[in-house]
Structure formats: structure tokens, C-alpha cells
């Protein structure tokens, strides 16, 4: 499979010696959804601005759709669609006007541009609002319009810079579905930056984690999660006096892990599937359980382990995610 994006030693240093991107390397395969995950100020948007020719790198090189972002910027611009952070769309224009303007920017003939605008308005569900000024749109409508604008010329590579920041859960899920559909039906390569772990987990085939301008981890979500260790199983015996017996039984399934008082935790060497054997062993030892908690490693765990700190604001900023860390599956209580 060919690479849609190739980045080698990319550097961006701003005046005053501020190193926003510090020699990153990455390869994004054609047709892939690549999630670029990191906190605010990690270098995500700077990387996107360089890949979309909005900012010149100060070191390294990058190609997008086979074209060098510095030496063949015009070809890159023809091949890419860009939806930048904060949906940079003119609030005084209508959705239809903006789509037609975008078609002109991409040299699409007038009639074809108008037809494409109507098709995209329909696709993102904005036909009824097409003649309203964008300033009256909700956040979700703006993001959908932004996505439509990025798709006017049917790009080979689509850059989405934090596309769901500030959206309500319904709008967020709707946008995810649109990105999935686009990738599935058109085979468009999607480079998605996000500070939401769940978004990267849900959408991306592969994820790169950037922190302090450097890529600290890269792989599929499953690979990344597996790389940080086995799932943790925490058993709370119904009879607190049997904590010792429980620990003895669990010791056969993997090394002990930190658990809360009155409970015993173990890292399951056999993975989540090992839970069945654990339950059988506890049954055979006649240990009744008050609760069984399985904690699968998450991208949050990956982030913490690779960077040494938590992805600030993820849980609070991601509307409706309702969790701070982990995908703790309550399988019994």
C-alpha cells in the first residue's frame, strides 16, 4: 500500500527559539484514517499547518499525496481538503455562498461547482439552512459545513484539525459517522488531530501520540493498548476475611496489581479472556465475590505511560464521554 503522507524529521521552530515540532517522522497509508493525538500545545496543529502548506517547515521534509509540501505546494493544495480548528468560516456568508466560493477557489467550472454545492449541502444535512448566514448556525452545523467545504473538490487526503472540539455528543457522533462513511465509500485518506482519546480510538486505524513536539508512540489503538500491559482484574470478595485466599487464587493468573482496600487486583497474563478461568478458580475455592472489575488498558493509559502525564481536559472537554480514564467493564457485582 502506498503512503499518502510521509514525514521525515519535520521541524518547526518559531521566533524566539520555540520548537513547536521537533523532528517528527510518520507515514500515513493511502485510504487510512490516522489519528494524531495530543494535548493542547503538543504540536498537532503546527504539524497540520505544515502538511497543508500553511506554514513552512524549518527542517526535515514532508510529502502529501506524493508532492513535497515546500517544493510542490500547489500540487499539494490541489490534492488536499482542509477543515481547520475552530471552523474558520465567514459568519456573514451563507452556507451555499461559501460552498460556491470554495468551488471557485478549486477552479471547478461554475455549473459543476453549483451542482457539487447542492450535493454536499444535502449530504451534510444543511439544505434547509443553505441560505442562512453561517453566523446563525450551531456549532455542529458549522463543523458539517466545514467538512463539506473541505470535500468540494473530492480531495485525496483530508485534514481534520480537532473537528469535534466543542460539539455536543450527538453532533460529535454524527460527524464521526460522516468521516467513517467518507473513508469507507471514497477511500479518502483522513489525517485527524484530536485531543479526545475516545475520538482517536473510535475513528483511527492508527494513532500517533505527540507530546512536546515529538511523537512518543504510534500504532493501531489495539497495538498501543497492548504495548502498555495486560488488562487488570480486580476482585472484591464478598467476605472481607477472604482477601488472602483470593490473592492466593489470583496469583496463578498473573502478577499482582494495585487494588483498592478490601479487593485484590491482578494483571491477567492471558488477557481479558482469562477472566473465565479466574471465575472458575474462585468458584472452586468457594470464594464468593462482591464485585469483579475488568480494566482494559486505554489510550489514556498509553498516553500516561508514554508521556508521564495525563491528557489534560480530555474527559471534561469531550462532551458526554463521562469518564476520566479507562474502560472499566463492570462484569459482575
Amino acid at each position: 500500500m502506498t503512503d499518502a503522507i510521509v514525514v521525515e524529521g519535520l521541524v518547526r521552530e518559531f521566533k524566539g527559539g520555540i520548537l513547536a515540532v521537533d523532528g517528527i517522522d510518520l507515514h500515513v497509508r493511502a485510504g487510512e484514517v490516522y489519528g494524531f493525538l495530543g494535548p493542547n500545545g503538543a504540536g498537532k496543529s503546527t504539524t497540520v499547518r505544515m502538511l497543508t502548506t500553511l506554514l513552512r517547515p524549518t527542517g526535515g521534509r514532508a510529502t502529501v499525496a506524493g508532492f513535497d509540501v515546500v517544493h510542490d505546494a500547489a500540487s499539494v493544495r490541489r490534492a488536499i481538503g482542509v477543515a481547520l480548528q475552530d471552523a474558520a468560516i465567514d459568519p456573514f456568508m451563507t452556507g451555499r455562498e461559501l460552498l460556491r466560493l470554495q468551488a471557485v477557489l478549486h477552479a471547478i467550472p461554475r455549473q459543476e461547482g453549483h451542482a457539487r454545492a447542492e450535493e454536499l449541502l444535502e449530504r451534510v444535512g444543511l439544505t434547509d439552512a443553505a441560505d442562512r448566514r453561517v453566523g446563525t448556525y450551531s456549532g455542529g452545523m458549522r463543523r458539517r459545513l466545514d467538512l463539506a467545504l473541505a470535500l468540494v473538490h473530492e480531495p485525496v487526503v483530508l485534514f481534520l484539525d480537532e473537528p469535534t472540539t466543542g460539539l455536543d455528543p450527538t453532533s460529535r457522533v454524527a460527524l464521526w459517522e460522516e468521516v467513517r462513511r467518507l473513508n469507507r465509500e471514497s477511500g479518502t485518506t483522513v489525517f485527524l488531530t484530536t485531543q479526545y482519546l475516545e475520538e482517536a480510538d473510535q475513528l483511527a486505524g492508527r494513532v500517533g501520540i505527540i507530546d512536546g513536539g515529538k511523537i512518543v508512540a504510534e500504532g493501531t489503538p489495539t497495538e498501543l493498548k497492548t504495548s502498555v500491559g495486560d488488562p487488570t482484574l480486580m476482585i472484591t470478595p464478598a467476605d472481607p476475611s477472604r482477601v488472602g485466599d483470593t490473592a492466593e487464587v489470583l496469583a496463578q493468573f498473573g502478577p499482582a496489581a494495585d487494588g483498592k482496600p478490601g479487593a485484590v487486583a491482578v494483571r491477567l497474563a492471558a488477557g481479558a479472556e482469562g477472566i473465565v478461568q479466574v471465575v472458575r478458580a474462585l468458584d472452586e475455592a468457594d470464594i464468593a465475590t462482591a464485585a469483579i472489575d475488568l480494566h482494559q488498558p486505554t489510550l489514556d493509559d498509553v498516553f500516561v505511560i508514554k508521556t508521564g502525564h495525563r491528557l489534560e481536559g480530555d474527559a471534561s472537554a469531550a462532551p458526554g464521554s463521562g469518564r476520566r480514564r479507562g474502560r472499566g467493564s463492570k462484569v459482575g457485582r
Binding site: L54, A74, A88, P91, L105, L149
Partner: peptide, 16 residues
């Protein structure tokens, strides 16, 4: 205003 609002980015990331 267009630079501040990001609209210029849309223009210069296009092949126009």
C-alpha cells in the same frame, strides 16, 4: 478580520 478568523487559511490552503 479574515486572517484573525482563519478565513485566509482556507484561501491559501486552496490552489487559488
Amino acid at each position: 478580520r479574515d486572517i484573525e478568523g482563519g478565513f485566509v487559511d482556507r484561501l491559501i490552503s486552496s490552489p487559488a
